[in-house]
Structures are given as structure tokens and as C-alpha cells.
């Protein structure tokens, strides 16, 4: 599988050109310039940097350990066949409730070569964790990325790690959502795949105090800068509350800025569902900053971290819509009972 990586600027140009042509109202595009939506174009979207989901939960058979999981790259390998080797995929932990990362687990990858990649995991603390650099103590090295149904698991000391192709754990009636919450119970994601990054860590590595805040992000170097181009704590929040360019801004900004930038906008959306201003503010503050609260001494799921089986769609839709939408009638997928917990991929990678 070829990679077709593009330089950032040429990527931007090709994507902008495509959209401009497609959205031009006056052009008889369908006749004169057929749209090419094939993988070479789609890959320019860099979906392997797009965080689709984030989970944090106590290890089922060991309360002294936690599982941090981030999924990226929807439906591989159609648009991307590997992790981005220039990016840093990160789990962040706020240990003192100030919305600033105090601990960071940074996962980086080697270039794809002969169909193989390896991962490195570092743990940074203090100012190093807050920053975007590649600093941190090495905890996992040369971990092979899995590209088939057999997960390759790497253990080093108290840490266990997996990265690679797995079944998408998210369950949601996406078209019912698009149809203004008229759900039919059709799980759009039932046989989709993603690239998963799963880290098992001792609870002590998440901070001395068990009640922490956790989220995920992706950092990418561009023009001499390190840019935060994806970030996710709670699922669905960005989609339901943010319109247009705010969706991008929400991902690019740090949690410390969330209330200042987005609280009033969230309140407006919540008022549409019948919430009073005061209740809307109270509810919006529960999701701003966009950080998942997690007590690593507790195995309870949402809103204590997020487990794979948590029906976060039902919970959040019910909450956000003030009871107007209570369920999408979709059930959790099948998951492994042991690490890496994500089920085998559905599609054929090759």
C-alpha cells in the first residue's frame, strides 16, 4: 500500500482546489469536471490524525492499573494506511484540576516501511507535559504496529501497549442523528475499523491523587511550529455544540480556554432544548473544559472516565436535548475481555 504523503502546502492547495471546484454553484461540474473522490484525494485529509474516540477506565481485572485508549484513522486503509510518523499522539492527565496537563504519555511512530511501523511511548511530567515537544522518559520502544487481526502487544515494566488496526468500538445511529434524532437503531459503525492506541499504565503513573482529568490530543509539526490539530475529551460535544469554524477552534485550543471561548455558545444551544439560562450554564460547565474526570480507584464508567460499553450517546443525547432524545436504540459492540480490549478488525487490510 503506497502512502502518497503530500507536503503540507501542496496538500492545502489540492484540497482547496477540490472544494472550490465542487462548491462552485455555477459550474456544470458533473458534466465537465467529474469529481474524483478516490483515496489519493481523500488521504490529503490526514484522517490518521483525526481522533475518533477516547476512553479511560480501570483495568477490569486489576484495580491498580488503568487503560488509556485513543482511536484515529476511520476505516483504514481507504484514506490512510498508517499512523503519521511526524505526529505525536498524546494522552494528557491533569492531576490538580486546573485544566493544565501535568503528565503526558506521548506516542510517536516510525515511517511506514515494508508495511511495518513501530511505536515509541514517552512519559513527560510538569512543564514538559504541558508543552508540545517530544520530551519525556522512554517507557516503550520499538513496539510493532499491528496491521492484521492478530494484535501485537508490547510489555515493558509495568506498561503494556498496543497500536494498530482494530474494530471501531463506537456504536451510534449516525443517520438517525443526521435525521434530527429520528433514530432507527441502525449502528452505522457496526463493522467499521479504526487504528487504536491502547496503553495500560499503573495508576501511580497517572498521579499521586486518584481523581484526575484526562484527554487526548495530536501534535503535528508545521512550518517550524508544533500545532495541536486534534483534541478530544468527551465525545459528541464538539459535534452537537459547535458550528462551522468553531469545530476546528475547539480542537485546536487548550482546555484552559474552553469556558472563555465556548460557554456562551453552548448555553445558546442548550436553551434551544428548553433549558433555562442558569441550568444551561451549569450543564455547559460540566463539559467545559472538555476533560473527562477519572478516579482511578473506581471501576464505574461514565462520568468516571469512559468504558467501551458505556452508552455515551444515549447519556449525552438525553442530557443535551433535555430528554427530547433518549436513545438511539443501538447497543455496544463485542469487545475483548483482555488487552487490547478492541475487537478484531472487520475489514481486510490488504
Amino acid at each position: 500500500m503506497s502512502s502518497h504523503r503530500c507536503a503540507p502546502n501542496s496538500t492545502l492547495l489540492s484540497r482547496a482546489s477540490l472544494l472550490a471546484a465542487y462548491q462552485s454553484p455555477g459550474s456544470a461540474l458533473l458534466v465537465e469536471e467529474p469529481i474524483q473522490l478516490e483515496p489519493a484525494d481523500a488521504e490529503n485529509l490526514y484522517v490518521n490524525l483525526n481522533i475518533t474516540d477516547f476512553y479511560a477506565f480501570q483495568k477490569p481485572d486489576n484495580p491498580n492499573k488503568s487503560i488509556l485508549m485513543m482511536n484515529v484513522n476511520p476505516m483504514p486503509p481507504r484514506m490512510s494506511d498508517s499512523f503519521d510518523f511526524t505526529a505525536s499522539y498524546e494522552f494528557l492527565i491533569d492531576t490538580n484540576n486546573d485544566a493544565v496537563a501535568d503528565i503526558a504519555f506521548r506516542v510517536t511512530f516510525s515511517p511506514l516501511a515494508n508495511g511495518q511501523q513501530t511505536a515509541t511511548v514517552r512519559r513527560a511530567t510538569g512543564a514538559d507535559a504541558t508543552g508540545k515537544g517530544a520530551s519525556g522518559a522512554l517507557i516503550i520502544q520499538n513496539a510493532p504496529v499491528s496491521f492484521d487481526s492478530q494484535p501485537q502487544i508490547t510489555t515493558a515494566g509495568d506498561y503494556t501497549f498496543f497500536a494498530g488496526l482494530r474494530g471501531d468500538p463506537f456504536f451510534f445511529d449516525l443517520m438517525g442523528f443526521c435525521n434530527n434524532f429520528r433514530f432507527t437503531g441502525t449502528d452505522y459503525f457496526s463493522e467499521k475499523d479504526v487504528f487504536g492506541i491502547v496503553l495500560e499504565a499503573p495508576n501511580s503513573a497517572l498521579g499521586e491523587q486518584p481523581k484526575v482529568g484526562v484527554w487526548s490530543r495530536v501534535i503535528l509539526p508545521h512550518d517550524g511550529e508544533l500545532l495541536q490539530i486534534a483534541r478530544l475529551g468527551f465525545p459528541l460535544v464538539n459535534i452537537i455544540f459547535n458550528a462551522g469554524s468553531d469545530k476546528y477552534l475547539f480542537s485546536e485550543t487548550d482546555p484552559t480556554q474552553h469556558q472563555a471561548l465556548f460557554l456562551n455558545k453552548f448555553v445558546v444551544v442548550l436553551e434551544q432544548f428548553g433549558y433555562s439560562v442558569d441550568r444551561a450554564k451549569q450543564l455547559a460547565r460540566q463539559f467545559l473544559p472538555d476533560i473527562l474526570p477519572y478516579d482511578y480507584t473506581s471501576a464505574v464508567g461514565l462520568f468516571n472516565g469512559r468504558k467501551l460499553t458505556d452508552d455515551i450517546v444515549d447519556t449525552l443525547l438525553n442530557l443535551f436535548t433535555n430528554g427530547q432524545a433518549t436513545t438511539d436504540m443501538v447497543s455496544p459492540h463485542t469487545y475483548l475481555t483482555a488487552f487490547p480490549y478492541l475487537e478484531a478488525p472487520h475489514g481486510r487490510y490488504q
Binding site: P8, N9, T11, L12, R15, A16, L37, E38, P39, D41, A42, N44, L45, Y46, V47, L49, N50, I51, T52, D53, F54, N71, P74, M75, R78, M79, D168, F170, F171, F172, L174, F177, Y188, F189, K192, D193, V194, L220, H222, D223, E225, L227, I229, A230, L232, F234, P235, L236, V237, N238, I239, N242, S245, K247, Y248, L249, F250, S251, E252
Partner: peptide, 22 residues
Amino acid sequence: SKFTRRRFLIAGGAGAIAVAAG
């Protein structure tokens, strides 16, 4: 930069954006 705003597909956590581009 605008590059970051325009370049990335933002699912924002609604699970994977599945693709049927072909």
C-alpha cells in the same frame, strides 16, 4: 494557520467518519 483549520476532518468524537469515497 488556516492550514490546520481546513486540512483536517473534524469528527469531534462522533466515532469514526466512515468512508465510501471510492
